[in-house]
Design a protein around this nucleic acid. Structure first.
Length: 437
RNA sequence: UCCGCAGUAGCUCAAUGGUAGAGCAUUCGGCUGUUAACCGAAGGGUUGUAGGUUCGAGUCCUACCUGCGGAGCCA
């Protein structure tokens, strides 16, 4: 079992050490003082443990240190691990020695409520709070599960570039940067176009990295910098893509339920919906049927309209799993999506909507594999042909049907955690008018 | 960009146009089983900025700044 940089045991390991005397290093999370007995809650990143300091049982200087120590001071503490008779399965530390390594003054984040503006300005410190720690652990678990999912199925990870010469879709929401003296570059909005040639090389590929959208979005479901995982699979068509998306979401959700129960509990996340997601098939609804359902619910929508947040929430009502909507009108979707041969007004696209109002977590499609059809779509969208010549080459040299999707890591994490706003689901959120810290 | 809401102590919020207040945090005191511990005391303010109305403005009006929520777009 490898140890960290310090050979000291972690708080997380204490339940297996009942009866032992251990020394820990960490921070003071909270303190309750009751005359001749003090309760100090320590944290070290792996967990939390309550230390009990009794005046007549410790040397005078240890008692003094336990009184002087403040929230977020760094400490080295020694004590006996014992089960807490009031909470079975939980341990506490009978403190025998305590030294303050660094006394913390004026810690700004108190145990009471704070406003969003204040917390966001203190994001680097806010990260230490129990709720943020839990969310970041879930996020990390999701990231790890993503790699495990694809690796175990024979996918090759292909890192797509972050600096790109032109837009994938439109140019109004790109971050621009100077590449050379007379050439611009743009931060990537998607790795998809680069994955398609890679799928011709490796068959099954995926990329996972940061994505940048300079949209003027100011909602809880948008970030300007977010992480997206994108699989792209050769010879996979729309029905197989839907199977892949469902299997993917089921596996990630199951992984969180298996390994992050503690964090879900701390976040007061009811696991019922996540358990249903693992157990039940996801409904698959054609866009045309979705429009009829929405009309029945009183929405003034007709064929050709895109679905807004309220419509998405209405469609998922009554389901405790994600819902997949397919076959959107060709007019509202990207140029590269494959038209349905049986219904040329729609494309073989797929959106997966999370339940409970969390909205779109996956968007994907079968791609156009016919060279001339793709060429005509590029022309219809008035995209610069020379910029897409390499993309057309995928169809020119041994073309093949293929499909892929993108899943937003923060949106998925937000849904897992039951956290309403994406800003808590990434360590340092980048939002409109906010790039500090 | 558009629509709506807000800005008062370090933080979260009160205050009919008439003496600027509470809780938490901080400091001091009390308490041997606390769980956002509790009890007592103290310090802490140019009410976002600039102008205006009024005998009198935190409160009403105008402009600006900052933030929040939502829309469009999307993951």
């Amino acid at each position: 079992m490898p140890t960290g940089p310090s050979a000291l045991p972690s708080i997380a390991s204490l339940p297996a050490r009942v009866g032992e005397t251990v020394t820990l290093e960490g921070w003071l999370y909270n303190k309750r003082d009751s005359g001749k007995i003090r309760f100090l809650v320590f944290r070290d990143g792996s967990g939390y443990v309550q230390g009990v300091v009794v005046k007549k049982e410790v040397p005078e200087e240890v008692w003094a240190a336990s009184g002087a120590v403040t929230q977020e001071s760094t400490v080295r503490v020694t004590g006996v691990v014992r089960s807490d008779p009031r909470q079975p399965g939980v341990v506490e530390l009978g403190v025998t020695d305590l030294s303050v390594l660094s006394l913390c003054h004026d810690w700004p984040i108190t145990p009471k409520e704070h406003g969003v503006d204040f917390l966001m300005s203190q994001r680097h410190l806010w990260l230490r709070s129990a709720r943020q720690v839990a969310v970041l652990k879930v996020r990390s678990e999701v990231e790890s599960a993503i790699h495990d999912f694809y690796y175990s199925r024979g996918y090759t990870r292909v890192d797509s570039p972050i600096l790109t010469p032109a837009a994938c879709e439109g140019t109004s929401n790109l971050f621009e940067t100077q590449y050379t003296e007379d050439e611009k570059a743009y931060l990537s909005q998607s790795g998809q176009l680069y994955l398609e040639p890679a799928a011709a090389a490796l068959g099954k590929v995926y990329c996972f990295g940061p994505t940048f959208r300079a949209e003027k979005s100011k909602t809880r479901r948008h970030l300007r910098e977010f992480w997206m995982v994108e699989p792209e699979v050769a010879f996979l068509e729309i029905d197989g893509l839907m199977d892949l998306a469902e299997e993917f979401v089921k596996e990630l959700t199951g992984r969180i339920l298996d390994r992050r129960r503690e964090e879900l509990k701390r976040l007061e996340r009811d696991p019922a919906v996540l358990e249903a997601t693992c157990a039940k098939p996801f409904p698959r609804i054609d866009y045309r049927d979705a429009i009829e359902i929405l009309k029945g619910k009183g929405f003034p929508v007709s064929f050709g309209d895109d679905l807004g947040g309220d419509e998405e929430t209405a469609l998922t009502e009554g389901f405790d799993t994600p819902v997949m909507v397919t076959r959107y009108p060709i007019s509202i979707k990207a140029f590269y999506m494959q038209p349905d041969p049986k219904d040329p007004e729609v494309v073989l696209g797929l959106d997966m909507l999370a339940p409970e109002g969390y909205g779109e977590i996956i968007g994907g499609s079968q791609r156009i594999h016919d060279h001339d059809l793709l060429l005509s779509r590029i022309e219809q969208h008035q995209l610069p042909l020379e910029a897409f010549q390499w993309y057309l080459d995928v169809r020119k040299y041994g073309t093949f049907p293929h499909s892929g999707f993108g899943m937003g890591l923060e949106r998925f994490t937000a849904w897992m955690c039951g956290v309403p706003h994406l800003r808590e689901c990434i360590p340092y959120p980048r939002m409109l008018y906010r790039i500090y810290p």
